[in-house]
Design a protein around this nucleic acid. Structure first.
Lengths: 352, 352
DNA sequence: TTGTACGCGTTATCAC
DNA sequence: GTGATAACGCGTACAA
């Protein structure tokens, strides 16, 4: 009988646990716990500490963080929710987040929604089941049931890229308004007057702010866009951009001098549509994007766009998450990362 | 005292647990567990089952999967280890993996190594601490201490994109040999004879197989490359590709007719280097890549490359993981996904 | 400074 | 068919 060592559950597979290193070091396992956890209450004699550490190393002890989570109610894991990791705006954000959180012992769980809000709700619920310490939401709508759900669940949430209308959640976003204003001023300065826009859904802060950036500057110049120069995409993809641009070009009117697109992928699609319509970019039609995703400097023609510093956004979001996990007061601050105009060949100077 | 309801640990934050829905339904919590877990031993009367389910729904019960993991030794989470998620080859793989594993209730933990093997070992150890059920390794070297470590830890491992020399681990890879052979045959068929190559490190199966694909076909045609037409990159990045191409072009020789690059990012760099050297692609120098990452069809000139079907690789890897988690016998099979030649403007037909 | 004892929320194996 | 009761591995208040 004694201590009955048989593995009751087959799965334990000889994992070394706290008790094993305890018996091997001749101390109680609570002592081992204290040694291995700097910042424990009772101090340990250096001799014992060194000895225990040595034994632990020798046995190849790996703490079971699931068991620890059970006790502490903290998994040191955080979720990142995106529509589709294959959209090139997201990976740099993940890289930035990891750069900050990984050294602090956090793991990142990635959840793709596939643009389906039912899936998204499911992802949140499952992350809640896993007791993630927090969630980065990159899909935030202006009024967002996902945000509401996280609040109800009491999960610290940080919105990235986008913000809610009520700004009730901390967020790290790009200065879309400023970025788009700068771009629009440039478009006007270069003599373009017949402007068309391809916009994102207006239930997103990005979609709304970028449109406002354009409109504000136009208004300052006493201009407004006619209805037929405004089209929308459902998602910011190249295919949707191509379709939208086609509808702009198919009208019985002459093509616009420039098509300002809500982001780079949409702009890529617009370039394709122009080509298919036999129009030269930028000679017949100028095109602009937003994001400065990789390779848009290499396409033909090189894309004029606005750089977002995505990795910086990720890092800022990571730091913000650490701050909020530390303090009890999650002050809902909105951090704006500057945008940067990048002029390339897809937009030309009509005055030049 | 009765049941002493005070929250000993402050963090529990009123989470509904099994016991709560049990008392609310007037049954024992073990009964609730059985109801909520289809496939439990003792069957439950439909009446009780319905009642309990209703109560659970009403209370908004969310199972605590950490506690379940503690008991079952399975976290239903798997790790994905990559050098850098910002490399465009990885996101489609993640998407494919998620597409298969997410519906089965698995979560994916992403670990970036930043090309640092010490970091990578750390990532593995931390994933082990978290009791991941398995790991997808996308950084596999021909002889890989990481693979060894996972085997020692008893963590099911599936190699993606690359394979070990001894093929001791299951893997889903692209048919690099076939892909590069097809590409090389095309290069020769189009009349190119003065060929240069930019290769990846030869401790990677991709690096080695792609090089072998080229060499084999050349050999079949009685050709070999001179030393000065062969250069290497450390990582497959655009910057490294640019540097490597520069060293090819800086020699006191005429430029090669074509530079075959180990992947698309490297090819992008090579195009930049050619431009900087005042050479026209493809008139002066032809360039080819490998991967067919997004937007290489749009760059100037459109890149001739080999398509890898990355998302398919991810899906196949996901299915393979499910199979291995199910069976006790992890037969180390290697699945090859076909490659597909994509001819574009960056390589021209000298005979045409 | 170290040992004791209990609980975290679940699953699994007993009884009844 | 259902209730009671051990584990699972660890953290920590409390006692020694």
């Amino acid at each position: 009988m004694s201590t009955s060592k048989r593995p009751k559950t087959e799965a334990r597979a000889g994992r070394i646990k706290l008790a094993d290193v305890a018996t091997a070091s001749g101390v109680h396992y609570s002592t081992v716990s204290r040694v291995l956890r700097p910042g424990s209450k009772g101090r340990i004699s250096d001799a014992v500490a060194e000895h225990v550490k040595a034994v632990a190393r020798e046995l190849g002890y790996q703490p079971n963080s699931v068991a620890a989570s059970m006790r502490t109610n903290s998994t040191h894991s955080i979720g990142l929710i995106v529509h589709d990791m294959s959209d090139p705006v997201y990976p740099p954000i993940l890289t930035g987040i990891e750069e900050v959180l990984s050294p602090q012992g956090f793991a990142v769980l990635v959840g793709n929604t596939g643009y389906d809000i039912a899936v998204e709700m499911d992802v949140v619920n499952r992350m809640a089941s896993r007791l993630v310490d927090g969630i980065f939401l990159a899909t935030t709508r202006l009024e967002d049931p996902i945000v509401k759900r996280c609040q109800d669940l009491g999960i610290p949430l940080i919105s990235v890229l986008r913000q809610t209308l009520s700004r009730d959640t901390p967020a790290v976003i790009n200065d879309c308004l400023g970025g788009m204003r700068a771009l629009t001023r440039q478009v006007l300065a270069w003599g373009h007057r017949d402007i068309a826009v391809i916009l994102a859904p207006q239930n997103l802060s990005t979609g709304r702010e970028r449109w406002r950036g354009i409109r504000d500057v136009l208004t300052e110049h006493g201009m407004t866009l006619p209805e037929h120069r405004i089209v929308y995409v459902e998602h910011m993809s190249a295919d949707q951009g191509e379709r939208a641009a086609r509808s702009l070009l198919n009208a019985q009117r002459p093509p616009p001098e420039v098509i300002m697109c809500v982001n780079d992928l949409v702009a890529i699609g617009a370039i394709r549509a122009c080509r298919a319509a036999g129009l030269n970019v930028p000679l017949d039609v100028g095109i602009s994007g937003y994001n400065d995703i990789p390779l848009v400097d290499m396409i033909d023609p090189a894309l004029t766009t606005v750089r977002m510093h995505l990795q910086e956004i990720g890092k800022a979001a990571g730091k913000m998450m650490l701050a909020h996990l530390g303090s009890e007061a999650p002050s809902p601050a909105t951090v704006r990362i500057d945008a940067e105009l990048v002029l390339r060949a897809s937009l030309r100077n009509l005055n030049g």
